[in-house]
């Protein structure tokens, strides 16, 4: 096959080329303007955040030496030479880690139930009343915009120290986050089954049970698991404000410069979080496969 390219005469080409150059220049100008705005914002941010490159450069050595110190025992030996000394508090830390996981589970499960109940009430295709939807939506928004640790701070005052305020904080934040995601899933379902149930005389609950749930359940579970991963990570720091879990031990160790303890706890947390991420990823992929098989 032979292709031929016909080039129009110069007189015809010139205006085309000029138009192309103009369009290109206009786009360039736009890009430059955007970049300039970003640069200006960054410069302002640097001023606002007290950024000092020289301080950073001077202190950067601290960063590496901090990790070096993390790898040393009190005796001056490297931590891996004496694991029993390094993990002297293993039993206690494992118990606290377990407590952290249980907190994340309780909070996620409660938040899942909350989001589950509320998501139907703020879905456009299931609730006709705009007022109900508006109220539920604003409630969910407040729940997820206030960070869980702020709730934890307040709840620690109301409920006292311990895992209870932490769990409540996670539960409320999770309700907001999951409620929004769930309602997005519900709003994108196929409405034909819902109409079918309505046509055969099903009431609102039956429509949800038999027409909506089968379509959304695997998605809900997958989002719930994803949130559990996030919450495990979040629960490790709730102890910073006294809301239970391993965070309390960690912040004490960091503040009091118990270097080997810090590295031991951090490593435990990292392994645990990664294991849970991996597990939940497996389950989520299987759920997705299940979904694909049915469709």
């Amino acid at each position: 096959m032979i292709h031929t390219i016909t080039i129009p005469p110069d007189a015809q080409m010139a205006p085309l080329m000029r138009a192309y150059a103009d369009a290109l220049a206009a786009r360039r100008r736009q890009t430059m303007l955007g970049l300039a705005l970003v640069a200006l914002a960054l410069a302002l941010a640097c001023l606002g955040a007290d950024v000092d490159i020289f301080v950073f450069w001077d202190k950067l050595g601290n960063f590496t030496s901090y990790f070096y110190r993390l790898s040393k025992l009190d005796t001056g030996a490297f931590v891996w030479t004496d694991p029993t000394e390094w993990y002297w508090g293993l039993q206690r830390w494992l118990r606290q880690l377990g407590e952290t996981l249980l907190m994340a589970y309780l909070g996620t499960a409660s938040g899942f139930v909350g989001g589950f109940v509320l998501c139907f009430l703020c879905s456009r295709n299931l609730v006709r009343s705009g007022a109900v939807r508006w109220v539920v939506r604003r409630y969910l928004e407040i729940c997820r915009t206030v960070p869980d640790i702020v709730f934890a701070l307040i709840f620690v005052v109301a409920f006292g120290l311990g895992p209870l305020p932490g769990v409540l904080a996670i539960a409320i934040h999770t309700t907001g986050a999951l409620g929004k995601l769930f309602s997005e899933v519900v709003e994108s379902i196929d409405m034909k089954p819902v109409e079918g149930i309505a046509a055969s005389g099903g009431n609102w609950f039956e429509r949800i049970r038999f027409a909506v749930l089968p379509q959304v359940l695997s998605n809900f579970t997958s989002y719930g698991l994803l949130r559990f991963e996030v919450n495990v990570r979040g629960a490790t720091v709730l102890g910073f404000v006294g809301a239970g879990g391993i965070g309390e031990e960690l912040i004490t160790a960091i503040r009091k410069f118990y270097y080997s303890d810090v590295s031991a706890i951090l490593l435990l947390v990292m392994v645990c979080v990664m294991a849970i991420d991996l597990l939940s990823e497996r389950v989520r992929h299987r759920l997705l496969a299940l979904e694909g098989g049915r469709a």
Binding site: A49, D52, V55, K59, Y66, V237, L250, I251, I254, V269
Partner: peptide, 21 residues
């Protein structure tokens, strides 16, 4: 990724001192 932002903050405070940086 498995370390929370607040923990990173504590670590960086040890490096560059208290403050927004």
């Amino acid at each position: 990724r498995s370390i929370d932002t607040l923990i990173w903050a504590l670590i960086w405070i040890n490096v560059v001192g208290l403050g927004p940086f």
